[in-house]
Design a protein around this nucleic acid. Structure first.
Lengths: 204, 204, 204, 204
DNA sequence: TATGAATGAGATTTCATTCAT
DNA sequence: TATGAATGAAATCTCATTCAT
């Protein structure tokens, strides 16, 4: 018989995660102290420890949330019936992401998750789970090859890595230069990929 | 009047930076303590402070060295007389990098530099200086367009970002999966770019 | 106007004290947290504060209960019409104590009360009240001397301390070694005291 | 090549342990904070952690030192050629202990070690090592029995416990009442034991 | 220059207690 | 009375840095 509802509890959790995200974006995982998060969340130290075992758990929760979101982008590409449409979908997701006001901060946090994953086991596992989203993408590309939408000579594995790199590189560059020309980037990517991807219509 | 020669001094500096790189690769900038670096370098705390103002300066020196190296890759591409050859040069540099035994650690450090640059002014400046290496690349691409090696419709700015992203994404993925198929990646990238880049011979 | 009967209130108090005793025996006064006691008592923090001002009051209440029990042992010795019988009574009380299933835990708590009394005023007062039970014992011993049951040369004050020490030392040793030979200990004590205590019959 | 000699290091260690002993005697293991010890030792927090891993290690070191001292008392009794002389030796050690100005505090600490040993594994081991000093005492008593200095009917094991209890009880009572009549206590104990112990001369 | 013991600000976390419900 | 989420003071410990030698 909890005093607060599961919904309220979830809201508090979110409140903490959002405050932490702001702090981490501003100062980094290590530069931001628990006290910073306490201040930013307008809670007390104790309250935060009611929701998270410690700072690492907060970082992990944020890493989780980050990679869920990014996996979703790739998953969308993989789930699409044909590659050309999938890329369009990716484009749309991209722009949706750009319009989200909090996304700027979250991108910074993503990059820190990458760095942290290199020496923190727990974070590493979370990131690896995200990376496994590349598998369905590879399968999807192979399907595309069989359907003649993609040249048979291309290595699907490597192509999936290229696509992922294009996403990762963009996240990185936009963190440094928030005003970069996202539309141009996307168009260029589309054009490059257009050389190798044939629309279903073209195949017929 | 230095008690030791400039050469000796330089050697000590390098000894510290190499020890620090190993520590940072293993535990991250924040996870590695000065004590770790002291132990790894087989020096004393005081000695290290004779060569660096503090931990941040060590991080900065390493960031500097990192970005010098990465800029060199891009610079090579930019400096090349024609794009196709430049890409080949990039490929060769890539493999040279892979063969360097210490590079595995350094790649991890690079990613941490990216993360650190998001909230550390000093590191940020170093990274930005590195990013400016994209400018000659853009000019080089525009030259290529004028020479007809590249379709006029392509946005050189965006293409340069794509090339950079392909480099960054590769560094990241290789940090997570050291045994990924670098050759396949490079081939796929070459093939994609081959669609838009015409060799000088073809132009004639 | 209490909402629950005095009887119910007393029962709740006991429930808390018993839970606290278990916790304290297991982890010590300081190692056991209020949360431990809350869990063990199956109540809520708030509920406990309805019955006790705070943790210190719980400790004090337990100390009180402890010293009441131990004083009773000495008091029994003092109250006895002659020393020999009194010692027999003490023996019986000893064994009664040993059979009590919860006593093992309580002995541990007693020792912690001793430690706590050394720097906590409140606990100290409780312990001192218990120590005053030695006074009637001294009087009883002096009566025994006058009655010829005890050599006149013995210092009653010191003998009372010896008797108390034998009790305290036993509690301590049994806390460390629960299976020590209590019967043997008692017999040896009796034999030693037998040298100086004459039974009334012998006096006549 | 340490900057300070082993002797200086030992001195610092002692400085910390003495400061800690004063704090612990005053406020108890848990009531005394590291800050208290820092202040009392006139060192810095960091300096203390150069010598001890943490507070528990300080407590353990003090427990060790305590039990070494107490074991020595028993060991002296055991090592003595005959029991009567051994008891005299114990008496002398007792008084030596009483004259030591710092001993008052240390006795308080001993009692806290007893309490702590009931739930701290490490401290428990230290105390148990101390308790094993009873073994040589038992052997010594059995030797005494064979030599006719002690009645054969007495249980040496139990008698050793009685002797230990007399020591423990005295420590406890003197912690509460520093001015108790130690001489009287000792005389009474000697008299009681005199009933069962025959001097070698008497045996002849 | 080099040493390494020492510094002390500051970080994370705990937990006795409170109070709105 | 009872609940339990929340409080916040305080505790332990770390670690970048300093400075007497």
């Amino acid at each position: 018989m909890p005093k607060i509802s599961a919904q309220q509890r979830q809201a508090r959790r979110l409140q903490i995660l959002q405050a932490a995200t702001r702090c981490f974006a501003r100062k980094g995982f290590h530069g931001a102290s628990m006290e910073d998060i306490v201040r930013e969340s307008r809670l007390s130290p104790g309250a935060i420890y009611c929701y998270f075992r410690g700072k690492r758990q907060i970082v992990a929760a944020i890493a989780q949330e980050r990679h869920s979101r990014e996996s979703a982008l790739l998953a969308g590409l993989a789930a699409s019936p044909n590659l050309a449409e999938g890329l369009d979908g990716l484009a749309r997701s991209f722009f949706a992401m750009l319009q989200d006001p909090g996304e700027k901060q979250r991108r910074k946090v993503s990059i820190q998750v990458w760095a942290e994953s290199l020496h923190d086991r727990h974070i590493r596992q979370i990131v690896e789970r995200g990376l496994r989203q590349r598998d369905p993408l590879v399968r999807s590309l192979r399907d595309g090859q069989r359907a003649g939408q993609l040249p048979a000579g291309l290595d699907a594995e490597s192509l999936s890595r290229v696509l992922l790199a294009l996403l990762q590189g963009f996240i990185l560059q936009q963190a440094w230069e928030p005003d970069l020309d996202a539309g141009g980037y996307l168009e260029t990517v589309t054009r490059l990929l257009g050389c190798v991807i044939r629309k279903p219509a073209d195949v017929l």
